[in-house]
């Protein structure tokens, strides 16, 4: 038996249950906290830090920090959103995110997050312009790691849901990059039906399904009609999360 308690997010009382993270409680209440590495169905990791909030004055990632009774959370403030803009801006500069020619444009969570956060000037920082070879060896998918944002969603999905280790990071610091368990993707055990390769795991255009690029017309793509996060705000909660009240 569990009991609900209250957390205070930007002054609003939000119901929460023991074991819920701040993000889960907010999602269930229809309050969207921006995030890139967290995705429905995978254990949270807290690596992108876009969901950073202040929990009783301390910066934490909302996707991993447990909600505690009477916690005072600062979320949608200029200060926190500035942090988020800086984080997303750095991601845009670290990789090669050339939206005009990218088939993920319109369904890309990074692009959609930039729009949501109002990032209109992406010239503050130098572009690192990495040169990472395209891996088109596999008959079904292409891996363009120039677009990887190190969310680890594919790594976790392969490990947790597919029981494989198709993806992993190699290198450290600025030299870290996504690698596959083999010389090329075709050498790995990636196959049709893998959760790691399915729509919605890669948030950007790093894992691409072959031959389907641009088949969804402009106007019908995932984020053409609404901002990222509006599905949570409009539906008042994710399907895998629910408060006791909803149950």
């Amino acid at each position: 038996m569990s009991t609900t308690f209250t957390i205070h997010v930007d002054g609003a009382a939000i119901p929460a249950r023991p074991g819920q993270t701040i993000m889960e409680a907010c999602d269930a209440a229809g309050l969207y906290i921006p995030r890139l590495c967290d995705v429905e169905g995978l254990a949270p990791q807290g690596s992108c830090r876009v969901c950073t909030v202040r929990d009783n004055g301390r910066c934490v990632s909302a996707c991993t920090q447990p909600a505690m009774p009477e916690a005072v959370i600062e979320h949608d403030t200029e200060s926190m959103n500035r942090y988020r803009r800086d984080l997303v801006t750095m991601l845009l500069h670290e990789g090669n995110h050339l939206c005009p020619g990218c088939e993920a444009s319109g369904r890309c969570e990074l692009q959609a997050m930039a729009y949501r956060l109002g990032i209109t000037d992406s010239n503050r920082l130098p572009y690192l312009q990495p040169v990472r070879p395209l891996d088109a060896s596999h008959p079904l998918w292409v891996l363009d790691t120039n677009r990887c944002i190190f969310c680890s969603r594919c790594i976790r999905a392969s490990r947790e849901q597919d029981g494989k280790n198709v993806f992993e990071y190699v290198g450290r610091g600025i030299h870290k990059r996504l690698a596959v368990n083999g010389n090329h993707l075709a050498d790995t055990s990636a196959q049709e039906g893998d959760h790691a390769m399915s729509d919605g795991i890669c948030p950007v255009g790093c894992i691409i399904r072959k031959g389907e690029g641009f088949s969804t017309p402009i106007g019908q793509r995932r984020f053409d009609k609404h901002l990222i996060g509006e599905e949570i705000e409009n539906k008042s909660g994710r399907s895998d999360l629910s408060t006791e009240e909803a149950q």
Binding site: G101, E103, P133, L134, K210, G211, G213, F214
Partner: peptide
């Protein structure tokens, strides 16, 4: 090196 379906775009 780019992919064939990207080319027209």
């Amino acid at each position: 090196g780019r992919l064939l379906w990207e080319v027209p775009v």
